[in-house]
Design a protein around this nucleic acid. Structure first.
Length: 551
RNA sequence: GCGCCCGUAGCUCAAUGGAUAGAGCAUCAGACUUCGGAUCUGAGGGUUGGGGGUUCGAGUCCCUCCGGGCGCGCCA
C-alpha cells in the first residue's frame, strides 16, 4: 500500500502534477469507521501546505497516478482528502495463511536487531514484602520486556537491591528485627521509634530463632546488627523472589547496591565525574554539576562526613550497566521518584554516556480501597497490602491483566473487597474463555474426524461472512499492535487488543458454525479458528497470562 | 512557590495529530433443540474541566486558569 502510494507520488511528480521538493513520509492505517474501506492514507493532507491546494484536489491527483494492483478492489477520495482503499478479500486469506505458517512467531519483528536492552524494575527495598504498588511496576516491566524481546531486542530483566550497609532504613530495619527476636525470647521490649511494625518481621525472627538458636542477640552491638541485617535481607529477598515468581516475574539479575560500594565502583564513578569536570567540592561536600545537564540544582554526591549519597551509587550503577554492554537502559520507577529523573540523566550524561539511550518510565500510584475507603499504606506501620495478598485473592492471571488494563501514566484504583467479586467478571476471563472455547471446538471437531488442514492447501475464499472478515482483520492487527506497544512503551494496549480479538471471535462463533457445514467451509473455518487460537495464545503469552484449554 | 501525572458516558478507563470520541461495568429490553450462556443482539446515556492559540484537521501539541494526586533532603 505504501509502495503503491510512493509510486503514485513519484509518477505525479515526474508528470509535473505535484511540484514538491521531497516526498512526505507515507502512513497508511485502518480507518476507525469500516465504511471507509480497509486502509486509509492521509498523504494528501500532508501536502496541503506546500501545494497550497485543498487536500481533496491533491488526493485526486495522486489517485490519478496510482498503479493497478490485483489486491486493491476500490480506491476512493473522501471529501476531506483521505485516500481510502478497499481490498479484495483475498488479502485477508493471505493473513490467515501467514499466521499458520509463522505460528508462535506471528507478531514478532526484528527491528531491535539484537541490540541489548536492560529493563530495571520493581527494585523494592529489602526491608519489606512486595506490595501491590510494586506489582504494578512488575507487570509493566515484565510485559514491556516481553514486548521488546518480541520486536527483536535482547533483554535483561534486572532488580536493583537497595542493600547499602549505611542506609538508615536498613539500620532501623535490623534493630526492629532484633527487638522481634528478643520478644520471642520473652523480653518485654517495644519497637524503636523508627521501627518496622510489619508482622513479616515476626515471621523472620521466628525462622531465625528456629534455625540459628537463641544466642544471636548476644555480643557486640554492631556485630549483632550486621548479623540480623544480613539475615533479614536474605530472608526478605527470598520472599520477594518467591512472590514475584508466583506473579510470573523472574529476573535475570539481582543487582546489589552494596556491591557497588565494596568493589570501589562508587568511588571510581565519583573520580571520573571529577576528572570530567562535572563534580566539584563545596561546603566540605562533593557536588554533581547536574544543572549543566538540565537539572534544577546541583546534587550532593559525597556528604561532608565522607559518605556517598544515593545518587552517587546510582551514577555508578548506570555506568556499570552501560559498561556491561547494554545499548539501552530503561528504568521503571514509581511516581515518588519522578524528581530523580533529571539528576540521574545528568549523571549518565556527565559520565559520557548517551542520555537519549537512558529512559525512565514512571507509573502512577496504586490507590488501595477497602469497601470504598482509601487505605493509607506504610511499610513501617506494617499495614501494607502485599502482592501476595492480591495473588491469593484473585490469582496471577487476573492480577496481571488488571494491572495492565490502564495506561502506566494513569492512577490505578484497586478495591480489595471488590477484587474477588470483580474477578468473576474480569475481562481476563472473557479472553481466556475465547481461547478455551476454541480448544473445545477443535476437540469436538477432532472427535468427528476433523483436523486443522494446512492453509496452503485449503480454499479460504469461502470465508466471506461479515463476522469472518471482521475477525480476520483483527487477527491482521497483531504485528502492528506489538510494534506500537513496544515502541510507545504501552503494554496496556495488549489487554485491549486481546479483548477485541475475543470479541471478534465470540461474534463469529455466534453467526458461523464450523462443524456441520459443507466440508470445504468447515475446512476453511477450522483454519480460521485455529489462527484465532494462535493469535490469542501469542498475545496472552506476551501478557504473561495463561491461555487455558479448559476453564 | 517549582516539577511530574491526571481531569473523557452514572462508575472505571481507551483512543501512533485524523473522518461519526470508543470499550467494560452498571441500567433497561431481547436471543440457545445445534461446535462451551464465563456467550451474543439492541437501547439509553458526552459542550473530552473552562478559555485562548498552532494546524487542512486537536481529547491528543502550546499558553493560561480551575480542580485532584504525588514529589521537591548532605534520606533511600
Amino acid at each position: 500500500m505504501v509502495a503503491l502510494l510512493e509510486q503514485a507520488l513519484q509518477r505525479a511528480r515526474d508528470a509535473g502534477d505535484l511540484p514538491i521538493t521531497h516526498l512526505p513520509e507515507i502512513s497508511v492505517e485502518p480507518p476507525r469507521v469500516k465504511e471507509f474501506g480497509d486502509f486509509a492514507s492521509n498523504v494528501a493532507m500532508l501536502l496541503t501546505r506546500e501545494m497550497r491546494r485543498p487536500p481533496r484536489e491533491i488526493a485526486d491527483l495522486i489517485v490519478k497516478h496510482l498503479p493497478e494492483d490485483a489486491l486493491v478492489s476500490k480506491v476512493e477520495v473522501a471529501g476531506n482528502g483521505f485516500i481510502n482503499f478497499t481490498l479484495h478479500p483475498d488479502w485477508l486469506h493471505e493473513v490467515v495463511r501467514d499466521i499458520q505458517t509463522k505460528g508462535d512467531a506471528y507478531g514478532r519483528w526484528d527491528v531491535g536487531k539484537g541490540e541489548r536492552v536492560n529493563v530495571e524494575f520493581v527494585s523494592a527495598n529489602p526491608n519489606g514484602p512486595i506490595t501491590v504498588a510494586h506489582g504494578r511496576g512488575g507487570a509493566i516491566g515484565d510485559v514491556l520486556a516481553n514486548l521488546l524481546e518480541a520486536v527483536g531486542y535482547q533483554v535483561t530483566r534486572e532488580f536493583y537491591v537497595n542493600d547499602a550497609t549505611n542506609s538508615l532504613q536498613m539500620q532501623h530495619f535490623a534493630r526492629s528485627l532484633v527487638v522481634r527476636y528478643r520478644q520471642l525470647l520473652g523480653e518485654d521490649i517495644g519497637l524503636p521509634e523508627d521501627g518496622y511494625a510489619g508482622e513479616y518481621l515476626v515471621d523472620i525472627a521466628r525462622e531465625l530463632l528456629e534455625r540459628e538458636g537463641a544466642h544471636l542477640a548476644e555480643g557486640d552491638e554492631t556485630e549483632v546488627l550486621n548479623r540480623f541485617r544480613n539475615y533479614a535481607e536474605e530472608a526478605m529477598k527470598r520472599q520477594q523472589q518467591a512472590d514475584l515468581a508466583d506473579f510470573g516475574v523472574v529476573f535475570d539479575v539481582w543487582f546489589s547496591e552494596n556491591s557497588l560500594h565494596t568493589s570501589g565502583q562508587v568511588d571510581a564513578a565519583i573520580r571520573e565525574l571529577k576528572e570530567r569536570g562535572h563534580a566539584y567540592e563545596h561546603d566540605g561536600a562533593v557536588w554533581l554539576r547536574s544543572t549543566v545537564f538540565g537539572d534544577d540544582k546541583d546534587r550532593v554526591l559525597v556528604r561532608n562526613n565522607g559518605q556517598p549519597t544515593y545518587i552517587a551509587a546510582d551514577a555508578a550503577y548506570h555506568r556499570n550497566k552501560f559498561e556491561r554492554g547494554f545499548d539501552y537502559l530503561i528504568d521503571i520507577w514509581g511516581p515518588d521518584h519522578h524528581g530523580y529523573i533529571a539528576r540521574t540523566r545528568a549523571a549518565v550524561a556527565a559520565l559520557g554516556y548517551p542520555a537519549e539511550n537512558f529512559e525512565v518510565l514512571i507509573y502512577q500510584i496504586v490507590r488501595l480501597f477497602k469497601g470504598g475507603d482509601l487505605v493509607r499504606m506504610s511499610k513501617r506501620a506494617g499495614n501494607v497490602v502485599t502482592l501476595r495478598d492480591v495473588l491469593d485473592e484473585v490469582g496471577k492471571d487476573a492480577a496481571r491483566f488488571f494491572f495492565l488494563m490502564r495506561s502506566h501514566e494513569s492512577p490505578l484504583d484497586f478495591d480489595l473487597e471488590l477484587a474477588k467479586k470483580e474477578s468473576s467478571e474480569n475481562p481476563v476471563y472473557y479472553v481466556q474463555y475465547a481461547h478455551a472455547r476454541i480448544c473445545s471446538m477443535l476437540r469436538v471437531a477432532g472427535e468427528q474426524g476433523w483436523t486443522v488442514p494446512a492453509a496452503r492447501e485449503t480454499d479460504l475464499s469461502v470465508l466471506r461472512e461479515e463476522a469472518e472478515l471482521v475477525l480476520m482483520k483483527k487477527l491482521d492487527e497483531l504485528p502492528e499492535e506489538v510494534l506500537v506497544a513496544a515502541t510507545e512503551r504501552a503494554p496496556h494496549r495488549l489487554t485491549r487488543y486481546s479483548m477485541e480479538v475475543a470479541d471478534a471471535f465470540h461474534k463469529f462463533y455466534d453467526t458461523c458454525r464450523v462443524v456441520g457445514e459443507e466440508a470445504p467451509l468447515t475446512r476453511a473455518r477450522l483454519v480460521l479458528v485455529d489462527a484465532t487460537r494462535l493469535v490469542l495464545k501469542n498475545v496472552l503469552t506476551l501478557l504473561g497470562v495463561s491461555a487455558p484449554e479448559r476453564m
